[in-house]
Every structure is written in structure tokens, then in C-alpha cells.
């Protein structure tokens, strides 16, 4: 085959690199955690030049990051409730706050470690509106006009599910889904509706935007979307 004498170094390098890739897939989760923590504490800022240092990826299903000034913002809690609510941004922020210091895990693999969330517990809002006995689930809507999500009543009442208005101690920006978004800590990111403007109490689960496109309705991290392993 070859006209040139010599050692098959090309093949060795090739197989070595493919091996590095395979080992990287197996260990990348650990390495990327370690690398992200290093990048967070890096005083030189040099780590920002290299990939994998964490950081957000900003998704939108409409091709646009809708902007709504806090003065114009309204959150509706309606459906099977005793008193439908329409909260302004100021009213929401004035409610007793809850804080979570938790990771944000996307179903496609990327994750941001130790995000500081502040908001109002979703169950507090439901209690204020008064959920009727035959209610079973929530349908959540976004003011982007397209995105929807669902939660069972049991999931919605968890302590680690909140209507968030602060991310890392700052008001949530438009690309992060601000001024108000959902944060469902134990589930993949697609549950955490951005630009949240409606919480409708309904009598059965209505699959949301991605769920109509094949994603699991119960989006537990590590226990859904094709797998059942340890929760991160």
C-alpha cells in the first residue's frame, strides 16, 4: 500500500486522539465540574479563553428574546383557583422570598454550577390563589407567545420550585428569561420556563412545548429522557 518507508505514527496519533475523545466523554462530567470551579476562582481571567468553563447558553424557541419592562410585567395565576391573581413585578418581589443555590442542568448536557436563585415559592402563590380540590396540574405560559410547560400539582408544590426574579443576586436579564422565570431545581432546564407570565391551574397535565416534541413530561434530572440513574 505504501511507497514510503516508515513508522505508522499517523495511525497511532489518530487512534490516540479518538481515544482521548472517548475517555473525555466518560470522564468529562467530572473534569468539567472541576474545570468550572477552577475557572470561577481564576484571578487571571485566562481560563475564559479556553472552552468548557461553564456559562450559560441562551435558548429561545421564537428566535427572539422578548423584553418586558418590570413596570409592564404581570403574572397571572388563574384556572381552577378560588381567587385568580394578577401580580405586578413589585407585588411579586414584595412577597416572602425563597433562595436556592443549585445547578442548572440542560437536557443536552451543559450545566452551570451553583447558581444563586431568588424568588417566590410556587406553592406560596398557589396557596394565595387557593387551588380547588379537583385541580391536578399546572399549565405554564411565557410571554414569548410560544413556550409552554406543565407540572403536576405534587411537583409544583415542592420546596425547590420557585418563580424566580433574581439570578446570581441580580435581576434576571431578558436573555435569561427575565424579569420573571420559573426555576424547577430537580428537573432539566426546559421545565424552567423563561419569560413566565401565566400559571393556569388545570385538571390534567397538558404536555408543554418540548414535550410535544418528544421530551419527557416528568423531566427529573438523571431519571428521565431515556435514562434512570442518579440525580445530580
Amino acid at each position: 500500500m505504501t511507497n514510503e518507508p516508515g513508522t505508522p505514527i499517523g495511525r497511532r496519533v489518530f487512534l490516540g486522539l479518538v481515544g482521548v475523545g472517548a475517555v473525555g466523554v466518560a470522564t468529562g462530567s467530572t473534569i468539567s465540574n472541576w474545570w468550572q470551579q477552577l475557572a470561577k476562582r481564576d484571578p487571571t481571567g485566562l481560563s475564559a479563553v479556553f472552552p468548557g468553563g461553564g456559562g450559560w447558553r441562551y435558548y429561545t424557541v421564537t428566535g427572539d428574546y422578548p423584553k418586558r419592562p418590570t413596570a409592564d410585567y404581570r403574572l397571572k395565576v388563574h384556572g381552577l383557583v378560588d381567587t385568580p391573581l394578577t401580580l405586578t413585578y413589585d407585588e411579586l418581589v414584595a412577597l416572602p422570598p425563597t433562595r436556592l443555590d443549585r445547578d442548572f442542568q440542560c437536557v443536552t448536557g451543559w450545566r452551570v454550577l451553583g447558581v444563586k436563585w431568588q424568588g417566590v415559592r410556587l406553592s406560596d402563590l398557589l396557596d394565595r390563589a387557593g387551588v380547588q380540590p379537583h385541580a391536578r396540574a399546572l399549565r405554564l405560559t411565557s410571554f414569548d407567545g410560544a413556550y409552554t410547560e406543565s407540572l403536576t400539582m405534587e411537583q409544583a408544590r415542592r420546596k425547590d420550585v420557585m418563580v424566580a426574579y433574581q439570578l446570581d443576586r441580580k435581576p434576571i436579564s431578558s436573555d435569561h428569561g427575565g424579569p420573571v422565570r420559573l426555576y424547577v431545581a430537580p428537573m432539566y432546564g426546559y421545565k424552567s420556563v423563561k419569560w413566565l407570565d401565566g400559571i393556569e391551574v388545570v385538571d390534567k397535565v397538558i404536555p408543554g412545548y418540548w414535550e410535544e416534541r418528544g421530551y419527557s413530561i416528568d423531566a427529573w434530572v438523571g431519571r428521565s429522557n431515556g435514562r434512570n440513574d442518579e440525580t445530580t
Binding site: A26, G109, T232
Partner: peptide, 26 residues
């Protein structure tokens, strides 16, 4: 490598969270 890690990311249903994160990192 980009082909197989990209495939894990795209057809992620078949893989665990850590595998997806690893593939994304690589």
C-alpha cells in the same frame, strides 16, 4: 470525535446526564 459527541448531544435520549455533559465538554 466531534461526530460521535455531537451525535450524543443531538440524539441525547439514549444517554445518561453525565454522558451528555461529557460529550458536550469534549
Amino acid at each position: 470525535v466531534l461526530g460521535f459527541t455531537g451525535s450524543i448531544m443531538y440524539w441525547n435520549q439514549a444517554f445518561g446526564t453525565d454522558t451528555r455533559t461529557g460529550a458536550d465538554f469534549v
